[in-house]
Amino acid sequence: MTSPHEQKKRKVSGSVVVTANRLGDGAVVYRTIDDDWTTDLASAAVLAAPAAAVLLQRAEADGVRAVGPYIAPVEFGADNRVLPGNLRERIRLAGPTFTLPGAA
């Protein structure tokens, strides 16, 4: 729930992913293990927090496909599904928490 800027400084422990926004349309994307980006959290590289620094560095070097990469926490659901680790990340993945105008 803090800005990406603050989140970088904040210690994220446990399991994490590297996330960013896609340059062309701003969509939320996650870094994969083979240095690509995906909109599907299930396909993201999930790492222990200390190991994510390297993944982040490589993501930062990729300045054209995605913008503002940072490390974000994840959790595991009952079926071991990867889930966002806080409210901010849940909103990034699922969109605003209310019905959008005109969508009702």
């Binding site: 926004n21 054209v64 913008v67 503002g68």
Partner: peptide
């Protein structure tokens, strides 16, 4: 120039902001 990579995000950011373009959580 941004989409082609000629401008970095740091450079482009001031240019896009001067024209009202923000990057929010899910989109521009």
């Amino acid at each position: 120039r941004r989409l082609s990579g000629a401008l970095t995000e740091d450079e482009f950011k001031i240019l896009r902001l001067m024209n009202g373009v923000y990057l929010q959580l899910h989109a521009y």
